[in-house]
Nucleic acid binder design. Structure first.
Lengths: 166, 166
DNA sequence: TATTGACAGTTCTAAAATAGAACTTTAGGA
DNA sequence: TCCTAAAGTTCTATTTTAGAACTGTCAATA
């Protein structure tokens, strides 16, 4: 399957994966949220090859996740900063970090702690229901075909159907 | 950089990316949460090559995200089901789906709707602070080096430092 | 008994993506 | 003049992936 095909799939996860679903894009975004902005900063902090970095930055700009802002005229130089669409990726990044904090840390403990400016405490992110505010777990959620649903594989259709009536 | 190196990085995001940071792993996990369990179901529903599917399933089992359960003896056949560690990936999957729902849907609308069994309403996931319960945004969070922090690139160290004192 | 089909992979080759290093361009400073 | 910085681009070798065919085990069917 080609990457381009993913963008067209009638699945919000597949379409998001088309944008951020590779190793380097996620690591680049991590750096963006730490306020890394320039090509060489990304390069030295990630160890990614310059070729791939240029390619991924271009892709993230194309998808509207990053914006190229000139910070110097002669020679022309740009910074890459997150757009609102990019800032909206924060819950994804945080939930990835949180899973790593729970399941992948070694004996040294967490590499990074997060403080909430509002309440001044170190926190973990918690995912809750927008309607009742209760924490969400996989087992407490049903899925239903939405208005954008389209024909999928028989196995998949069956699974969604079974799921909806559990 | 090799994939194996990612697992060793002092960064919870990098370590999680080592497990789920590729296109197919994320799509396989999506199917798992829709209760797809068998090799051929994954294959027909995803269109992934059998080779890669076998490879990714093996990797997810190795990392303890999936477990292979025999469901038939002659011939030996297995199902792949999520472990608790795998179920804990739910917030990641849901936040990816949610971002796609907001930023990547076409005019047809969402392919899938989610209902919370507790309150019987269609919902969106919201990420909140574990301490004060307020919704989280990138701008309201500080990062601090934690006990597992280690030397990183100068650019990165500088960014974390600047960040901590903002 | 021979044939077909389901399931869970493995093997093969060609095509695509990635790594690693060197090179380019524009400009400022020693 | 030579050196450095920043932001890429180009090159070749290696690795990964795509796509299709093949294997082995067993059950059901003709």
């Amino acid at each position: 399957m080609k990457w381009d095909a993913l963008e067209e799939e009638p699945c919000s996860l597949a379409r998001t994966v088309a944008v951020i679903g590779d190793r380097w894009s996620l690591l680049i975004l991590r750096e963006c949220f730490l306020r890394i902005r320039r090509f060489d900063e990304f390069q030295s902090s990630l160890g990614v090859t310059r070729h791939l970095l240029a390619d991924r930055l271009k892709k993230l700009v194309r998808f509207g996740v990053l914006r190229k802002i000139p910070y110097q005229d002669a020679p022309k130089r740009y910074e890459y900063i997150l757009t609102q669409k990019g800032l909206d990726l924060y819950p994804i990044i945080m939930s990835i970090v949180h899973w790593g904090n729970i399941h992948m840390v070694d004996s040294r403990g967490r590499p990074l702690l997060h403080e909430h400016k509002n309440c001044h405490k170190m926190f973990d992110p918690v995912m809750v229901c927008s309607e009742c505010g209760e924490p969400l777990t996989a087992k407490e959620v049903h899925v239903h075909p939405g208005p954008g649903a389209r024909k999928s594989s028989p196995a998949r259709a069956k699974a969604v159907e079974n799921e909806a009536k559990r």
